[in-house]
Design a protein around this nucleic acid. Structure first.
Length: 103
DNA sequence: TGAGTGACTGTAA
DNA sequence: CTTACAGCCACTC
């Protein structure tokens, strides 16, 4: 908890993702300072806090991830509840709702 | 301490 | 077009 900088940043960023928006693993990794550590984001998500909105995490295509607890079906439902349009396990208007940190 | 693993990405064939 | 391989860094056991 808050001892690892990278993981801490990921947690913080995930928690800051506004409702109705999504973000990619690569983006989170880049925001944490390691643009090529996208895998680590997934790893943290897997071992991290389930309370965080990991369902807003999608791959670079805007498609839902694979190991989400409950399956992509659950993740898609969560996205829909967030007001994120998605179909066939793919986020709709992905590029348009893709979250970007406010500088 | 060390080795293995992974919810990814990009390039290559 | 699809499938395969390699790179990358942090986390867990």
């Amino acid at each position: 908890m808050a001892d690892g900088t990278f993981r801490n940043d990921i947690y913080d960023l995930i928690a800051k993702i506004p409702r109705g928006s999504v973000v990619t693993y690569g983006d989170l990794a880049a925001l944490a300072g390691h643009p090529n550590a996208s895998r680590i984001v997934g790893g943290i998500a897997h071992y991290g806090d389930i309370n965080l909105p990991w369902h807003r995490l999608v791959n670079r295509f805007g498609g839902l991830a694979s190991g989400f607890p409950g399956g992509r079906d659950v993740q898609m439902q969560l996205l829909l509840q967030d007001g994120t349009s998605c179909n066939n396990y793919i986020v709709d208007n992905f590029k348009d709702i893709r979250w970007k940190p406010i500088l």
